[in-house]
């Protein structure tokens, strides 16, 4: 809970379809590909919900020099990793928002602004948001996003935060929603289904 109530990053740049936020390496913590994050755009206004689809670590001039240096002490390497000149960039795909009327599984009306705080969604938020699966469409249609892997990872997260007896049904429902959305593309469907398939499936 403590981890989820702490901001993980600040928004660097954004649009209504997604945003990029920057953070320090030691704040990365629970961030991972396919996890849900939220940004409150305005107090009392919308909270944008998104999926992490990319974590990018850029180089800086000092790192470039260190790469060429010999026998760099480990303390220097660690220092460089933590106290970088440029932030770690986390790319987020917007998949919904929450306002006074409730949860919406569509693009937010306004993008988050620079330096808005980004938080990880807690389990309850993930469960509430994934109770409806219409955000699949936004993921599958997003350009320049590894949509199949992203959706599979997000579904893995959403399944894990559920009670163990509800996981299987959630994944089956998700699979069926995908089968409806991807009926024009059976190969893509099969690919995602393979990725989300639980290891052990009851044979009832």
């Amino acid at each position: 809970m403590g981890e989820q109530s702490q901001p993980i990053a600040y928004v660097l740049r954004g649009s209504t379809t997604g945003f990029v936020c920057g953070t320090r390496v030691n704040r990365l913590g629970a961030t991972a590909f396919g996890r849900f994050v939220r940004v409150t755009v305005a107090e009392g206004g919308e909270t944008v919900l998104g999926l992490i689809y990319g974590i990018r670590i850029d180089d800086d001039p000092l790192v470039r020099q260190l790469v060429l240096a010999e026998d760099v002490p480990e303390s220097t390497v660690n220092d460089q990793r933590v106290n970088r000149m440029v932030p770690v960039e986390i790319s987020v795909l917007n998949v919904g928002y929450r306002d006074g009327r409730g949860l919406h599984h569509s693009l937010p009306p306004r993008p988050p602004l620079s330096l808005h705080l980004v938080f990880m969604c807690d389990d309850a938020e993930v469960i509430a948001f994934t109770r409806e699966l219409s955000f699949f469409r936004l993921v599958l249609n997003a350009p320049d996003v590894p949509s199949e892997d992203l959706l599979a990872a997000a579904l893995g997260v959403a399944a894990d935060v559920r009670e163990s007896d509800a996981r299987m049904q959630f994944l089956i429902d998700a699979g069926r929603e995908l089968a409806r959305l991807l009926n024009h593309d059976p190969r893509r469907l099969e690919n995602i289904l393979r990725l989300i398939k639980p290891e052990e499936v009851s044979h009832e």
């Binding site: 089956i172 699979g175 069926r176 995908l178 009926n183 059976p186 190969r187 099969e190 289904l193 398939k197």
Partner: peptide
């Protein structure tokens, strides 16, 4: 079936998960 392609290369119905997902949808 929603797509004739499925008839050409049927999914792995021996997997119960796949079977449950496909039946009634695709």
């Amino acid at each position: 079936s929603s797509n004739p392609q499925i008839q050409v290369s049927p999914p792995d119905f021996s997997d119960p998960f796949m079977a449950k997902v496909y039946s009634g949808t695709a």
